[in-house]
Design a protein around this nucleic acid. Sequence first.
DNA 1: GCCAACGTTGGC
DNA 2: GCCAACGTTGGC
Length: 157
Amino acid sequence: MRHWLMKTEPGEFSLDDLKRRPGRTAGWDGVRNYEARNHMRDGMRLGDRILVYHSSVKVPAAVGTAIIVREAHPDASAWDPASPYHDPRSTPKRPVWLMVEIRFESEFARPVTLAEMRAMPGLKDMPLLRRGMRLSVQPVKPEEFAIIARLGGRAAE
DNA sequence: GCCAACGTTGGC
DNA sequence: GCCAACGTTGGC
């Protein structure tokens, strides 16, 4: 089992939104970056654990966890002209963009802020902490996942 | 194929 | 709101 971090702007879609969905699941559509797509396609497998991270907010933070419940499949929003994620290069015959489906697992007792992560020696190699890192789907080491889960007030398992 | 210009991301 | 960093685009 691998571990990942997925960014989302809570104004668009938050961990709370995920929790309120029927079945507490959601398709993670709208990823329009090749490296992120390739992580979903080549790396993510059923049961992998996700850190859900809220970006573009006053206090950016990891707020909880989720699990992959469906592996990469075509992202239909790409060929929907009405979607903000529309990309005419992608068609049902030749999909360019992919999505996974995730299910809510836990909400941290308290958010683990970016500043807090920067202060933890055990997290210093996380891509998230690198200057200018914008990748919205990133691999996370099991140790890093455990540290963050513990900071958030949740047993690491 | 190079690379400058441009648009976007996202912390601060 | 600023702006650094990055990915993408398009002229050549």
